[in-house]
Amino acid sequence: MASFPAVLQSEWTKVRSVRSTVWTLAITFVVTLGVGALLSLLTNNNFDSFRGNSESPFDATGTSFSGILLGELAIIVFGVLAVGNEYSSGMIRVSLAAVPQRVTLLAGKAVVLGALALLVSLVTAFTTFFVGQSLLGTHSTTLSEPHVLRAVFGAALYLTMLCLFSAGVTAMLHNQTLALGVLVPFFFLLSPILSAVPKVKTLAHYFPDYAGSRMLLVYEQHGQPYGPWPGFLICLAWTCAALAGGALVLRKRDA
């Protein structure tokens, strides 16, 4: 029986030895920061045009996180590849031979992926925030303002949970191509469309991406179904359900 620290060490070695997983984390940082910085600069230079006659408070934090949508895509791909590479290469059989306790194996993966995703997401969130605020000039905000620090941490937690959710779905499907074929259309096509359809948008408001995006709100918007903390709990529930489903399938199915 492999000890859990040994499983963690093995999973860490797998992640850092696969170039594609390292690159997807780097892309998460670059695109989130780059797009956020560009839009913050454009907003500052064209503030009156962008704001128009809007009476709602300007969300400087949300502006700096304008690139998080592309960051979501990269972190989803990371979660899929980190689990799916073993299935596509057949190395999962070697892993299961070394660690017959399948739930322990998946738990080790989840801990390593979650820790790595959280670290990268924290660096990404705080760097993106500070760079964005520096480019917003007189329209910027600070971490000491109400709810801003919570929103920055919320951005990091959101990306982390998306990574783990994607890893759980990949463990259920046992195929990284199929997982990407399900997750990418769901998050970037189905969910936005359903959110705009009056008869079903209430259901779409409880999808993990919508719920997680509430965590980035500094100002609660009128007409929104819930705020940041319920959004966190809903997104967390989706993440736990995906990982539990992955563990169940891993126990029941052959590699």
Rank of each mutant, 00 (worst) to 15 (best):
P146I: 13
L136N: 10
L119I: 07
Q101D: 15
S144W: 12
Q133I: 01
L119W: 04
V112K: 04
L116S: 03
V120A: 00
V112C: 04
L105Y: 10
P146M: 11
R102V: 04
T128M: 10
K109R: 15
F126Y: 14
L122W: 03
S140I: 01
L135M: 09
G108E: 02
V131E: 12
H139G: 05
L116R: 00
L122H: 07
V123A: 11
A117T: 08
T141S: 06
V103M: 00
F126I: 12
Q133S: 12
S121E: 04
V131R: 13
G132Y: 13
A110R: 08
V112G: 02
P146G: 05
R102Y: 11
T138V: 13
L119E: 03
T127Y: 02
S144G: 14
T127G: 09
L113Q: 14
V111Y: 08
P146S: 05
L143E: 01
G137F: 00
A110Y: 05
L118C: 03
L119S: 05
G137D: 00
L105E: 03
Q133F: 02
T128C: 07
L113C: 11
S134L: 09
L113Y: 11
T141A: 00
V131K: 13
P146D: 10
F130Y: 15
S140N: 10
V120P: 08
G108V: 01
T104E: 15
L122D: 02
L105S: 08
T138E: 15
V123P: 04
Q133N: 14
G132W: 11
L113R: 09
G108T: 02
T138S: 14
Q133E: 15
S144D: 14
